[in-house]
């Protein structure tokens, strides 16, 4: 078939109907009922699914961040320190762990996390930092800050 004009080229319907539909049916193979057997329904659902999959790649990152935040704030609550002041204290004492690794420590290495919480709160205490976040009913245990024997370098300015 030879197309001499562009007008004819536009009208060309592409691949054969069978192959065009099979592409969609393959992606719909694991669906149930008419969604997998009936083309007009299948194509709609496949398009939706692909759009969701594209958007979800970004959403997954946001969800992970939320999960990490939840874990960190839960672990901070145990030690009577808010997640905000934990972050501030670590930042001030130049310990640059991110959410991912902090939540990892909170979940799997609670003793190490406890050290970090103690260092952070000691640093804030030395800096005279007041946490404005209202913590009405602290449920955790207070850290014993006498154990933090790091005053020398915590007093250093950054």
């Amino acid at each position: 078939m030879v197309f001499l004009t562009i007008a004819n080229l536009i009208r060309c319907r592409g691949p054969d109907e069978f192959w065009r539909k099979r592409k969609i049916f393959r992606l719909a193979a694991h669906y149930i009922g008419r969604r997998r057997n009936c083309y007009s329904v299948a194509v709609r659902n496949v398009h939706h699914a692909l759009v969701y999959a594209t958007k979800a790649r970004r959403l997954k990152k946001q969800d992970m961040k939320d999960l990490w935040d939840t874990r960190i704030s839960a672990a901070c609550e145990q030690h009577n320190i808010t997640a905000f002041s934990m972050r501030e204290g670590l930042e001030r004492s130049n310990i640059l762990l991110d959410r991912k690794s902090l939540s990892d420590l909170a979940a799997w290495e609670p003793k190490t996390f406890q050290c970090l919480a103690a260092v952070a709160s000691r640093k804030l205490h030395l800096d005279g930092f007041i946490d404005g976040t209202d913590q009405k009913a602290p449920t955790g245990k207070n850290l014993n800050l006498d154990n933090v024997i790091l005053d020398d370098w915590l007093k250093e300015k950054k």
Binding site: C115, N147, L150
Partner: peptide, 10 residues
């Protein structure tokens, strides 16, 4: 290094 040692102190 001393940063991490307070746990032992505890």
């Amino acid at each position: 290094i001393r940063a991490g040692l307070q746990r032992l102190a505890s």
